[in-house]
Design a binder for these strands. Structure first.
Length: 303
DNA sequence: TTCCAGGTGGCAT
DNA sequence: ATGCCACATGGA
């Protein structure tokens, strides 16, 4: 196929979408900034490069069909973030500040299986290393993608395929612990294998079926998986299952709740109750604005 | 060297 | 229900 000559897809007048905010805010791990400021990522077994030119969003290496069937939803392009941010900002000044700071954040609609494994690996780790682990998994056990991405200016000139899909649950379920040694997952390796075996039982259908379903049903299934606790389950629900009322509480969000909202020593239940009362049914978005806000702020003051 | 990183499982109260 | 602690790994 002559995909190398594919025209870029130009979406005009896309507001409230900043590539850095969206791809570096900690919700996803397979997007990387390129020398020219565009972002290259792999999702749903496809490669995409996104570029911002003024008010336009440019999608490279995509077909119109893939845009309609995959990227439009993945990038959450049909949601009115202007109205959403106004709603959240009206709750309190802290959230107002956070939404202005991370004004271009969008909550992606990611693949449930990839999100599940990604956040399994996230526990007691940090974002650069999480990305490293996931990349190692993909290179070692993912299917190579024939993207047709050969005309780009970001080729390294090496040999062999450069882009790999996230490995399927079946593939990971077939591995042994020692197979995973080279990925350096640490003690989380056995969580990945155990979980892959369960998810692979029905090809991930149960997991995928949780999208948009009931909160309790999703939570119950996720918590039954080895290595998945309340925090990881909440992230999967928010980032892959469209459960936008999910409010993940990690060390950073806890810090926000303590230092900005005065909830010192609060239990997870107390924090969730507070978030529900204060931020409403869209508290998952609030969580991500707050997370990005506190994390970037701490980065500034850590040097 | 020690501490920390988008926590969780196991075990003790 | 709640409170500790080990858990692999790498960077500061």
């Amino acid at each position: 196929k002559a995909r190398a000559n594919m025209e870029p897809l130009i979406l005009k007048g896309i507001r409230d979408f900043d590539l850095e905010h969206t791809f570096a805010c900690g919700q996803c791990f397979r997007w990387n900034r390129q020398p020219d400021g565009s972002y290259l990522g792999v999702a749903h077994g496809k490669v995409l490069r996104l570029e911002r030119v003024d008010a336009d969003l440019i999608l490279h290496h995509v077909t119109e069909e893939d845009y309609q069937q995959i990227w439009r939803e993945y990038l959450d392009l049909d949601r009115d973030y202007r109205a959403l941010k106004a709603h959240l900002a009206s709750r309190d000044e802290i959230l107002g500040e956070a939404t202005r700071f991370g004004h271009g954040i969008r909550i992606l609609n990611q693949d449930p299986w990839e999100t599940l494994v990604s956040f399994l690996l996230s526990q007691n780790s940090n974002i650069p290393r999480i990305k490293q682990c996931i990349e190692a998994l993909c290179v070692s056990f993912g299917e190579p993608i024939s993207s047709g991405l050969t005309e780009g200016s970001f080729e390294e000139g090496g040999t062999g395929p450069r882009y790999f899909a996230f490995p399927t649950p079946e593939r990971l379920a077939s591995l042994s612990l020692s197979d995973l040694d080279l990925c350096r997952l640490g003690y989380r390796a056995k969580y990945v294998l155990e979980t892959a075996k369960v998810v692979a039982l029905d090809g991930g259908k149960t997991l995928a079926g949780l999208r948009g379903g009931s909160e309790s049903e999703a939570m119950e299934y996720l918590l039954s998986l080895c290595g998945v606790g309340p925090k990881v389950a909440s992230c999967i629900m928010l980032f892959a299952l469209k459960q936008h009322h999910s409010f993940p509480v990690d060390v950073w969000v806890r810090k926000v709740m303590e230092e900005y909202y005065g909830l010192h020593g609060a239990t997870p239940n107390q924090i969730d109750a507070f978030a529900t009362e204060r931020f409403g049914s869209h508290r998952g978005f609030a969580q991500q604005y707050l997370f990005y806000y506190i994390r970037e702020f701490e980065k500034e003051h850590s040097c």
